[in-house]
């Protein structure tokens, strides 16, 4: 996605997100003040004990993070690094061994905070015997929503996650990706201000992953706060404003994605329509200024882009097999789609 931008970008910042239009909200996000803190953990530790109170695992050690209003915050780390433990502590599903978690300035164990929270668990733990509509209706009732409100919200969400066609099928018949979508819809039923997503992209196909990422970005557009944990680094890089990297229960790195990933002494230029002579000339100019040209190639599209293009085209013209596709064509048509998408995000 990074390699095929047609616009000449003047900064390596471009590495971090799909297009310039998406970079803008990051700037507003960074200007938040301390009063906009949505989640705050203070010296948060969790030790898992066995039945006899003996220590088993020190899952989280003195974690101090703040998640601010309107940002997408990513928790990263390998398996068993304490990501899920942190999310469960924030939700009050676990009690801290020491330290505190404050969510909207309330203690994490208070149920009242849940009114503003949406949570998508690691796997969508839903009742298999309900269908999509019943599921959403049930969760809507848990928010004490009126019948009309529920009906309207269910329509919106089913459209959003693209399950209108499957609304009357029991969840047991659903594919993993469809369950994930229902899971997401139930997390959004109350129009929450804070959304916690545990591994949001697992089990989704590439289209689903792209849609999920677009949705997360759209949520930020609406001023919501998103906390997600994942080990799909690419996804985190694409959407997160800030990340915390955990390893063995300890916070190893915390900061803005753009800052963390910026490679200071490399300049990237994307140009179209150059002849071989022009390229040679540019190389000479670089050499003249003492630059060290590492590479000058035609970029390759990512597998994701190729796949998305094929699927989109197939949806537009069913039955035809795309035979003449080249990487360039793929990148161009994708850019067009990408541009329109980021436009709609605003």
């Amino acid at each position: 996605m990074d390699n095929n931008s047609t616009a000449v970008a003047d900064s390596a910042d471009e590495n971090t997100s799909g297009s310039g239009s998406q970079a803008a909200p990051i700037a507003t996000g960074s200007s938040t003040t301390a009063s906009d803190v949505v989640i705050e953990t203070r010296n948060l530790s969790k030790i898992y004990k066995d039945f006899w109170g003996r220590k088993k695992v020190h899952a989280l050690k003195s974690l101090d993070i703040e998640v601010r209003k309107g940002e997408i915050f990513g928790l990263l780390g390998p398996n068993g690094s304490g990501k899920s433990t942190t999310i469960k502590l924030i939700l009050g599903l676990l009690f801290p061994t020491s330290g505190r978690v404050l969510v909207f300035d309330k203690d994490a164990t208070e149920t009242k905070k849940n009114e503003q929270i949406g949570y998508l668990p690691e796997e969508s733990y839903l009742y298999q015997f309900l269908n999509a509509e019943e599921t959403l209706d049930f969760y809507g009732r848990l928010f004490d929503m009126s019948g009309r409100q529920r009906k309207q919200r269910i329509e919106e969400l089913l459209t959003l996650v693209g399950l209108q066609g499957a609304r009357h099928r029991q969840l047991r018949e659903y594919s993993k990706g469809m369950r994930r979508r229902v899971g997401l819809a139930q997390a959004l039923i109350n129009d929450p201000d804070l959304i916690l997503l545990d591994e949001p992209t697992t089990g989704l196909d590439p289209i689903g992953i792209r849609e999920m990422k677009d949705l997360i970005l759209a949520l930020r557009e609406q001023g919501k706060t998103v906390l997600l944990c994942s080990h799909q680094l690419g996804d985190v890089q694409d959407v997160c404003d800030r990340v915390a990297i955990l390893h063995q229960g300890e916070l190893k790195e915390l900061g803005r994605v753009s800052d963390l990933l910026k490679v200071q002494d490399v300049t990237e230029v994307h140009v179209t329509g150059l002849t071989d002579e022009a390229k040679k000339e540019i190389a000479e100019v670089i050499a003249k200024h003492g630059g060290d040209l590492k590479s000058m190639d035609n970029p390759t599209a990512t597998m994701e882009d190729l796949f998305l293009n094929i699927v989109r085209e197939s949806e537009a013209r069913p039955g035809a097999r795309r035979v003449t596709a080249t990487a360039d064509a793929a990148s161009e048509s994708d850019n067009a789609a990408d541009g329109s998408k980021s436009g709609s995000d605003e």
Partner: peptide, 14 residues
């Protein structure tokens, strides 16, 4: 055990 309870207790359910 199925963790379906997760989606319930994370709602404002007493």
């Amino acid at each position: 055990e199925n963790r379906t309870i997760y989606t319930i207790v994370t709602k404002p359910v007493r």
